[in-house]
Amino acid sequence: MEEKTTDQELARRALAGEASAFEEIVIRYQQAVFGVVFRLLRNQEEAEDIAQESFIKCYQNLDKFDQQRPFAPWICRIAGNLALSRLRQLKRRRFLPWEQVSFEVADLTAADPAEALEKNEIKQKVADCIKQLKPLDQLVVFLRYYKEFSYDEIAYILQTRRNNVEVRLHRARKKLHRIFEENQEVERCSPAGK
């Protein structure tokens, strides 16, 4: 079985001028980068633009990438930086776009559609709760739960202290936990829960 080319190898090849190697990097990290940027900007168009800029900046600074370190935090840090700069610009202009995001929460193929629907309700609540988090808190949750970055990596990406990451995560978890508790309360009270 063919082994997956490492990020470092791709970076080296991209530095040597191999465009396809850089395109592979883009494909590999587009979701992570887009996710980071979207958490902060919350607008598809803005996020697309800044995500593209992040990769361009990544390409321009590829020679500065320390190949002894993982690539993902580095590219996410670039994306976070650009998104935060953009966010500050937008705030200065008193314009912060906010888009509703549709979620793929309905599982129509489930064996028990009623149970699936109930789960979907919880999911929707959690998703709504996540959306209501402050952009940076939401980003920290995203980086932790979705991208499974360590606290240190998140601190590196957001250029903050590890302690700050812990505080943000704790705050977000508390809010989310409240939803779970409420839901459990509803389950206990409902006939199905008995």
């Binding site: 979701q31 995001v101 979620f103 793929e104 739960y145 989310l176």
Partner: peptide
Amino acid sequence: LIRGCFPSP
């Protein structure tokens, strides 16, 4: 649950 329902544009 958080992982599963994370808004993922």
